[in-house]
């Protein structure tokens, strides 16, 4: 198996110094109508560039834009769709992070590309790494939405409509030359899906992927009981949270993987740094069962925004060290 390092998804927007607070300050001033939209966008771009640079400094093979423009993983995708209204705050899974709940008010349509500009910015500013764009998956978006329209009776129908618009989005992203498109589905842990139906949903999503690799990523739950089912879905890379599951690595050692894997070894929700040797040892133990032509991406268990920036940087550096130590 080949080993690569990858950023999971989001990255902290602010740090400790005044300079590292510039995005927070810009939003604050914009909210009080003291600076223009143009000025806010300039700061957003600066901070996005810095997030990409931090990943490149850690020599990650796969980089994201840090999702710096995202308020939360749900409303950022849903807010620009027709037939959706953004509502009140809800806690995002078991974190101390909140999202605004979408309300489905009519037929869901994509008015224009959702992430094309963010993807173009990422491509423009990534010097070395492969690029990855994150999309929250249709299943998770649907189960976290409220339905108040006769257009859809169930969250399953909403997920199907969302899969249609996200497939269009994936086509746009693939056409723009993005290397990896990650579909986040932590919602599998809220409500178990009907796997046969889900397979059809992912076939639709993957049908327009072009040369891009499609990742299916779960986190915030024990993925071991779902592992065999996930292996059957038509995606290229399976992203899993190792920290939540005491039996997952044994399962991979036993069953292997038909797909590339993204293994979230480093806890994205705790500051404690993992032991380098232990992680490398675990990775080596997978070699016998994961085919030589498969890639294992070593990453964090979830996005890095749940950590302070200085700790997030340490986790990125540890990813680099793991990659280096493994290859030695």
């Amino acid at each position: 198996m080949k080993l690569k390092s990858a950023n999971h998804s989001h990255y902290p927007k602010i740090g400790e110094t005044d300079e590292q607070h510039k995005l927070r300050q810009a939003y604050h001033l914009f909210d009080r109508k003291k600076i223009s939209t143009f000025q806010v966008v300039k700061v957003q771009q600066d901070v996005t560039r810095e997030a990409i640079e931090e990943q490149e400094k850690a020599h990650l093979d796969v980089v994201t834009d840090g999702l710096i423009l995202w308020n939360d993983p749900i409303s950022h995708i849903m807010k620009n769709l027709e037939g959706v209204k953004i509502g009140g705050l809800l806690r995002f899974f078991d974190t101390n992070f909140y999202f605004r709940q979408p309300e489905i008010t009519g037929p869901i349509l994509r008015k224009s590309s959702l992430l094309k500009e963010e993807a173009a910015f990422l491509k423009r500013h990534t010097a070395k790494g492969e690029t990855k764009v994150v999309l929250t998956g249709p299943y998770t978006l649907a189960v976290l939405s409220k339905i108040s329209t006769p257009a859809y009776k169930t969250s399953r129908e909403v997920a199907q409509a969302l899969a249609q618009v996200l497939a269009e989005e994936i086509k746009d992203l693939a056409d723009s030359g993005i290397n990896h498109i990650q579909i986040d589905e932590p919602g599998f842990f809220l409500q178990r899906p009907d796997w046969k139906w889900l397979s059809g949903l992912f076939e639709k999503l993957c049908s327009q992927k072009g040369k891009a690799k499609i990742w299916l990523t779960t986190y915030f739950g024990d993925v071991a009981p779902l592992y065999a089912r996930l292996q059957e879905l038509p995606v290229d890379v399976l992203g899993v949270d190792v920290t939540y599951s005491p039996t997952l690595l044994d399962l991979i050692r036993k069953e292997g993987s038909q797909k590339d894997l993204a293994l979230g070894f480093l806890d994205g929700r705790n500051t404690k740094l993992e032991n380098l040797k232990e992680v490398v040892h675990e990775l080596k133990s997978l070699e016998k069962k994961v085919a030589q032509d498969k890639t294992v991406y070593v990453t964090t268990s979830c996005g890095l925004e749940y950590l302070p920036q200085d700790k997030a940087i340490k986790k990125l550096k540890l990813l680099e060290e793991i990659n280096h130590a493994y290859s030695r």
């Binding site: 927070r24 909210d31 939360d72 749940y306 302070p308």
Partner: peptide, 17 residues
């Protein structure tokens, strides 16, 4: 004490260790 972590929107708090 650790540095800032976002809770939502433009709200941050220092998450202790």
């Amino acid at each position: 004490q650790s540095s800032f972590v976002r809770s939502y929107g433009n709200r941050y708090y220092r998450k202790p260790v």
